[in-house]
Design a protein around this nucleic acid. Structure first.
Length: 605
RNA sequence: GGCCCCGUCGUCUAGCCUGGUCCAGGACACGUCCCUUUCACGGACGCGACAUGGGUUCGAAUCCCAUCGGGGUCACCA
């Protein structure tokens, strides 16, 4: 047994944003390596030698991969607090700065360096792989024929190919430039995957056919690249989603057939890493969480709008969305699931698209610590109790790194309950100090809603701090903190009045209590002469209390309420707002009086 | 369909390996109540599950089998 570090990896394909399920995989891989490192350090070991977490970008799909999404994925990981030891350097941070020298962390570059082709050639020469010349269409036709006969399709090994015997004729033809793929020659042995979560999973011989390991474009397939890279990059433990379980026998079979080619390791057999397959994460309705859900949601909303309002047609709508009519028509027909079109529709009809990717949750105002905490509980559980006997389920990444263990990964698939995530997020926000919340909220607004940030700044720093303190318990996300703060972020002349609230204001007096309108006018007079140094929450509260007493409204809090409710409607336009004293303090005297006057005018004589 | 995996409240799960302390515990959601100047926050209580059927055993959520149900996978995507 070697004493090298435990090395885990997360290997995303850069074809979009980081999926929330991928984030969990990354988090668990990170935690596993981190724990090994922590324990190694505690034993006095050399830093960096106990456990390492690696990122490798699997960009062998030329058509769908992009540098932009690779960067986005890296940024989202870092935002979640998942830093990698090995992998691309993340600009502006020191993440990846001390990566091991194991070649590029991008597979396309590794392919360009000839890493995979050297192994392909060795496999072909040892008779464990061979060129196959059928076109994609031909194989597809064979498959269809099988399906029609209700038989499972397995690629039939050509008669001239023999396991373990180098097929020179085929190799020569391939070298000549005939379009071909390389297929791995499966052996006849049964494969057992010793999975740390699922136990031993046995696959009978003959279940796996000769699969493609190099595509016609000369790029390795996922299966091949993964096996080569995991070995060459020293990966010891593979934690991944259960959807990969069925692939694992292929990987194990290749590991058994492969020997190292590099001078220092030449001839050494590939090792089989430790596998642990994690349960899957689904939507609440049991469907897969996919970015297509966004298109589905948008399409449904659009169809409803179309059915409800006959004046809306694809032809009239397309220009408003800045889209070609054909594109929109295709989208409606389900011909495409373009996320940008979905977003445009959502914006136009003011509907919320489901959050699927980390990027979405970030934009929706979730805190990274709430996301990783929630994700940790999907398929894993610390199995610990709190002093009060309740299950421990609120913890941070550092706790996870200290306690994560594969043997506590569950086997059953989980449904992603957004309501619970929302509750975790609200809880995480609630735990923030007022100052912390204020600064996080500002940062959020700076990125996603600069106009609101400008409006906030216009109120001044003192008001901003009071505002932060009172919206904090009302906010489940940084985005909906805006709802509670709306009154302070709109101008004194155009915040809307809720008609129902105004009606309440118009209600006649019920003697001895004066009407809301009368109370409002009286309160205005009092507030107008309140000393400036009293224009703070306690000062305002005291003033309202004395006024209530003066007017014989009573002495309890309900008395102040009789004053507060008309005021609230006047200055916020609705009967719902944070505490009235805080609300007025944030607005300041000038705004408050202006708003009362505007309301008085709106209600009319 | 073949192969493989899984099955505790609506949801995430604890308990299962090492049967009894479980007429099954927690959290989210939901409901009622309390707090309360509105809305939130907070607090209390409640609702609510061992898929089914057979075994094994003095005793099964826990062990075995079958059935049913759910899922994954069968690409020159990863």
């Amino acid at each position: 047994m070697s004493h090298g570090p435990i090395i885990t990896r997360f290997a995303p394909s850069p074809t979009g944003h980081l999926h929330i399920g991928g984030a969990r995989s990354a988090l668990f891989c990170w935690a596993f390596a981190k724990r090994a490192e922590l324990e190694h350090i505690a034993r006095g070991g050399t830093p960096g030698q106990g456990g390492r977490f690696m990122i490798r970008i699997e960009d062998t799909d030329q058509a769908r991969s992009s540098d932009e999404s690779a960067r986005g994925i890296l940024e989202d990981l870092a935002w979640l607090g998942i830093a990698w030891d090995d992998g691309p350097r993340l600009p502006g941070t020191d993440i990846g700065a001390h990566a091991r020298d194991v070649g590029s962390y991008f597979q396309a570059q590794r392919a360009a360096a000839g890493i995979y082709n050297a192994y392909i050639e060795s496999l072909v020469k040892s008779g464990r792989a061979y060129p196959a010349f059928e076109t994609n269409e031909e194989v597809e036709a064979m498959r269809k024929a099988c399906v029609a006969e209700k038989r499972t399709f397995k690629y039939p090994r050509p008669d001239d190919v023999q396991l373990g015997v180098f097929n020179e004729a085929r190799w020569a033809r391939a070298q000549k430039g005939d379009r071909h793929v390389i297929r791995f020659a499966m052996d006849a042995d049964a494969v057992v995957v010793h999975d740390q979560v699922l136990g031993d999973v046995k696959i009978a011989p003959g279940e796996v056919d000769d699969f493609v390991i190099r595509k016609a474009d000369n790029f390795p397939t996922y299966h091949f690249a993964v096996v080569i890279d995991d070995e060459l990059m020293g990966v010891t433990h593979i934690l991944r989603a259960q959807e990969h379980l069925a692939n694992t026998p292929r990987h194990v079979a290749m590991q058994r057939a492969l020997k190292r080619l590099e001078p220092r390791h030449e001839g050494v057999s590939f090792r089989t890493p430790v596998y642990a397959h994690m349960p899957l994460i689904f939507n609440m309705d049991g469907t897969k969480m996919s970015k297509r859900d966004k298109a589905k949601t948008a399409r449904k909303a659009l169809k409803e709008a179309l059915a409800k309002d006959k004046s809306i047609t694809p032809a009239t709508l397309a220009p408003k969305l800045n889209l070609a009519e054909k594109l929109l028509a295709d989208f409606i027909a389900g011909e495409n699931d373009n996320v940008d079109i979905a977003a445009a529709i959502a914006k136009h009809f003011n509907i919320a698209l489901p959050e699927i990717e980390v990027y979405d949750y970030r934009a929706a105002g979730y805190l990274p610590e709430a996301i990783t905490n929630f994700l940790s509980l999907l398929g894993w559980n610390p199995g610990m109790k709190q002093p009060d006997g309740k299950d421990l389920e609120k913890f941070d990444n550092s706790f996870l790194a200290q306690h994560f263990a594969i043997d506590r990964i569950g086997k059953t698939n989980a449904k992603f309950d957004r309501a619970k995530l929302l509750s975790f997020n609200a809880d995480a926000i609630g735990k923030l100090s007022d100052a912390e919340f204020a600064s996080r909220w500002r940062a959020y607004l700076a990125e996603y809603d600069p106009a609101s940030l400008a409006a906030l700044d216009a109120r001044g720093p003192a008001a901003a701090l009071i505002l932060a303190a009172i919206i904090k318990p009302r906010a489940k996300t940084l985005r909906d903190a805006l709802t509670a703060a709306r009154f302070a972020l709109t101008s004194d002349t155009d915040y809307p009045f809720d008609p129902k609230a105004l009606d309440k204001l118009r209600a006649p007096a019920i003697p001895p209590v004066p009407s809301g309108l009368e109370l409002l006018a009286t309160t205005r007079t009092t507030l107008a002469i309140l000393p400036a140094d009293q224009w703070i929450p306690p000062g305002i509260h005291t003033a309202l209390e004395s006024l209530a007493k003066e007017l014989n409204l009573g002495t309890d809090n309900a008395a102040v309420g009789k004053l507060a409710q008309p005021l609230r409607i006047a200055v916020t336009g609705t009967g719902v707002s944070p505490g009235i004293a805080e609300t007025l303090a944030i607005l300041g005297r000038t705004s408050t009086l202006a708003r009362i006057d505007r309301c008085l005018a709106a209600v009319g004589p």
